[in-house]
């Protein structure tokens, strides 16, 4: 009994320390100016949203937020469509070169984005997509594709073959089977893919730094980097920007924790 209490106590301490950095940032973002001189760990005595309003309108975070949500949402939706269709072909259709295709995707799993950003930049420039959201979207899709193709494949493999055969005997086309039979029973894989791709896209800095240099195109990551560099003394503003960047994915995590946990364990290679 005592040992159980000790274990709980240690874990509570660890959880407290793990939460403290985020909590203090949230506190700072909500403190009125006169409270900012108090130690960071003191919760705000009265709450103000002035720092949020300031970075949202004057700091340009409104635009950054909209840009980020647009890219991340398109990434997530298109990724669900493309990865599932590719996995469908690889699991349910027979064709020559399937093994080669699998190898090609395994190779993709091993490519670190960091290592190829220079040619990625020139490739996207060569098709005129620098400073366009489309360029970033293509890059995101291409680089994370293998992870989700394998995620859908491993899910599809567990779908009973009989289901697919029955639909084919009824005269359904491949697309109809994909749309009406396979996808409706693959909701967990769809949710996991959407959440993970949305989060990766939301959180990335490197690609966006390189591909979206123009102010109006910036995402939250690039906007926050710039804001932090220019307004070094505005701790409350930087904290508010940080909270704006973190809140959406934190909320998604709290609502869909089970899916996140499963996806992150499976897609951990990226």
């Amino acid at each position: 009994m005592a040992s159980r209490l000790i274990v709980f106590g240690i874990l509570a301490l660890i959880a407290f320390l793990m939460t403290a950095p985020s909590a203090m940032t949230l506190f700072t973002s909500l403190k009125p100016p006169e409270e900012l001189i108090l130690p960071a760990w003191t919760p705000p005595a009265s709450i103000t949203f002035e720092h949020f309003e300031r970075v949202w309108t004057d700091g340009g975070f409104r635009r950054y937020f909209l840009n980020t949500i647009l890219i991340s949402a398109v990434d997530a939706i298109v990724m669900i469509g493309l990865a599932s269709m590719t996995a469908y072909a690889m699991v349910f259709m027979s064709f020559r070169g399937k093994l080669a295709l699998q190898v090609l995707f395994v190779v993709g799993l091993m490519i670190p984005v960091t290592a190829i950003i220079l040619p990625l930049y020139t490739t996207i420039r060569s098709v005129g997509l620098i400073n366009t959201h489309l360029g970033v979207i293509f890059a995101d899709l291409a680089l994370a594709m293998p992870v989700f193709v394998f995620m859908f494949s491993s899910y599809f493999v567990s779908i009973p073959r009989a289901l697919h055969e029955a639909a084919r005997i009824d005269g359904a086309t491949e697309f109809q089977i994909y749309r009406r039979v396979v996808m409706p029973v693959s909701v967990p894989a769809i949710i996991t893919t959407g959440l993970l791709e949305f989060m990766w896209s939301w959180n990335d800095l490197l690609l966006r730094l390189l591909l979206l240099p123009r102010e109006g195109m910036r995402t939250l990551s690039v906007g926050l980097l710039n804001f932090q560099g220019q307004q070094t003394r505005d701790i409350a503003g930087i904290s508010a920007g940080t909270v704006i960047m973190a809140i959406p994915v934190v909320l998604l995590f709290l609502f869909f924790q089970r899916h996140f946990v499963r996806g992150m364990t499976a897609g951990a290679v990226k």
């Binding site: 950095p21 959180n203 926050l224 960047m245 973190a246 998604l252």
Partner: peptide, 10 residues
Amino acid sequence: VISPMAVATI
């Protein structure tokens, strides 16, 4: 789930 950029500012 917190972005490395946000981790950096924190």
